[in-house]
Computed example of a mutant assay.
Amino acid sequence: MRPSPPRPPRSAEPARAMRPASLAWRLGLSAVVAVILLIGQVHHTDEYFPFGAVAMFAQARDPEGTADDTCLEATQEGSDEPVTIPFGRGSVGIQRSDVESSLAAIRADPSRLQALVDARERLHPDEPPLTSLTVCVDRYTMRRGGPVGPPERIALVTWEVPR
């Protein structure tokens, strides 16, 4: 086998200084990203993700402890049987992490849940109106990082819908 011929040397051009306009737009973009990150962290919102907090992934879990899964449960007009209401823009107009990050405020003022009731009824006009809405958690017992048995449902705060 023949050895390959030597490569010609690359031309070693001296590094050029960055033009002021290039430097300005890079610094400006970095400042905008830093401000969005700061706002997301201070206000604990996921609106600017990936530049802000992601509440649902922000906490470490003990693989031998418990894990809570936030849920919504409601009663509808004409029935006392509770139904699980999914989170999401097409259901109640809000994501799970938004409720979790606002839970202290919702507990202090359960009437904040009326906005979710209104969104649900606007997005699902063919379904019976809600008479109550509960923020709850399904608490899972964990062993070796996996759930063991069915969850325990715990009501955190309930809003009785005024009619």
Rank of each mutant, 00 (worst) to 15 (best):
L38W: 13
A119F: 03
T131N: 03
R107W: 09
C136H: 13
I106L: 04
Q114P: 02
Q41V: 06
T131R: 01
R163A: 14
V137T: 04
L130F: 04
V35N: 12
Q41G: 06
A67R: 01
P14F: 09
D69P: 10
Q76F: 08
L37I: 02
V35E: 10
R122I: 05
G149H: 01
F51K: 03
P14M: 08
W25K: 08
D62P: 06
F87R: 01
V83A: 03
A60Q: 07
E47R: 15
M1K: 09
V157M: 03
I106D: 03
H44W: 11
P63E: 05
V42M: 10
G88W: 06
E127W: 11
V161C: 00
E127M: 06
Q95E: 12
G52W: 00
R19Y: 12
R19M: 13
A74Y: 04
P147D: 06
M142Q: 02
E73W: 13
R143V: 04
A31I: 09
V35S: 06
I106M: 01
A115S: 08
L27Q: 08
A12N: 14
R139V: 02
P9D: 02
R2L: 15
R153F: 04
A53C: 11
D46W: 01
R107S: 11
E73P: 09
I94N: 07
E13Q: 13
H43V: 13
C136D: 14
A15S: 13
A15G: 13
E73F: 11
P150Q: 14
Y140W: 07
F49G: 11
S30C: 07
R153N: 01
R120G: 08
L23R: 14
D109E: 07
M18C: 12
D138K: 07
F57V: 15
G149Q: 00
A53F: 10
R96G: 09
M1D: 15
A31V: 05
R2F: 09
V137F: 05
F87S: 02
H124D: 14
V42I: 03
S22H: 13
A21N: 12
V161L: 03
Q41L: 11
P5W: 13
D126T: 13
P3N: 15
V99Y: 00
A119R: 02
Y48W: 08
A119G: 04
I106W: 05
T70S: 10
L103A: 07
V161K: 03
Y140P: 00
C136W: 10
G90W: 08
D98I: 08
P82S: 06
L72C: 04
V148D: 00
H43S: 12
L38V: 08
R2N: 14
